[in-house]
Simulated scan of single mutants.
Amino acid sequence: MGFCCCKDEPIDLDSEVDLYHFDLHRAVGKGAFGKVRVVEHKRDGQLYALKYINKKSIIAMKAVKNTVQERRLLEEINHTFIVNMRFAFQDDENCFMVLDLMLGGDLRFHYERKLTLGEDAVRFYIAELSSAISYLHSQRIVHRDIKPDNVLLDKDGHAHLTDFNVACHIEHGKALTSVAGTVYYMAPEIIYRKGYTFTSDWWSLGVMAFELLFGRRPFRGKKSVEVMRSIMHDTPEIPEATGHMASAEAKDCIMRLIEKSPSKRLACKPKGAGLAELRAHAWFRGYDWEKLDKKAMQPPFVPDPKKLNFDFSHELDEYMAPSELLTHQKRKNRDVNKLSKEMRQLEEE
């Protein structure tokens, strides 16, 4: 599994959870706001994913609000197809979130190696993710960054939505106007900045389905402004080249998810009726939704447990920068920690 670090003195496993309760294993991810590595709880041997974010980096990137918001949202939610948070704590240097471990890798990793994932697989992932998205919306949470990179597979091949860094609550009667997310997956209503709600997540799901099934994104450009212009004005064309064939039902479902008008977009009916509309679509004819929600349906693809289902460079980067390597080494204990104080002040603003 990798290198482990242990604390010399005995650990009280009944005390408040901290880094010493876990053995540290290999690094498996790196993003703009943090790193992820596999950890093992010393009490029961349960494996988790530890996401840790350096406080100096949070403050320098002015990302305190996002970090605090992500933790608070994860404390509220728990769903079969979401990467749920199990513990959260901090020390002088880092903020930590202990999450469900997904050993199957993300959809971007598998897509880039296969070019397309096949219609059965894409339909299965869209079905599972639709359940997660509908649940979030019922909690008045909009994710705002649904894309292949943020969908992780467990060891059995089930899809789980992760990365709530730009997710937020929507208050009753109030629309969002801030631009957030990844430009290729942004809904037109986000770009126009005239106000948007939960409908933007269904658009992003449709863009992702298009990409996974047809091998390219529906809206493209060399620069962000060109991508935005394409999203606002272009009608995507479905490639019909060999290897990209899809059923008429699949094409209809995906094109209706990327309908530019939110009021006409599939799954966007008000008062929670959107999920039922999606599930009633012909592309999902014959689906046993009760079995799917219980993870009782067999996934079309099971990741190989003998292979690394993530980019090995994450681990290489970790050990190429020993000054940034996460260890159990004791941090200096100060009565008033400058970084924690700054974090608290920024959180209160």
Rank of each mutant, 00 (worst) to 15 (best):
S138Q: 15
E315D: 15
V64G: 00
E349P: 00
S261F: 05
F312K: 14
G195Y: 08
D163H: 13
K269G: 12
Y319Q: 01
P305S: 06
F109G: 07
A246S: 15
K307H: 14
K341S: 09
P218R: 02
S178E: 15
R86G: 01
L308D: 09
P322S: 03
V98D: 02
D106V: 08
C5E: 13
S130Y: 10
E237R: 11
A175I: 03
K30E: 13
Q298G: 00
V179G: 00
L292H: 02
T182M: 04
F33L: 11
I133N: 10
Y135H: 14
L107H: 08
D120Q: 04
F89R: 06
N66V: 01
V83Y: 03
F310N: 01
A282R: 11
A60N: 15
S224V: 08
T199G: 12
A187S: 15
D234R: 08
N78P: 00
C168R: 13
H281L: 11
Y184S: 11
K306Q: 12
G206F: 09
L136K: 11
G157C: 00
G243A: 10
R220C: 08
L13E: 00
G181C: 06
L47P: 02
N84P: 04
R256P: 04
L153N: 04
L316H: 12
W283D: 11
G272V: 06
E324F: 08
A267W: 10
F33Q: 07
A209C: 06
F33W: 13
K7R: 06
I11R: 09
D18A: 02
G34Y: 15
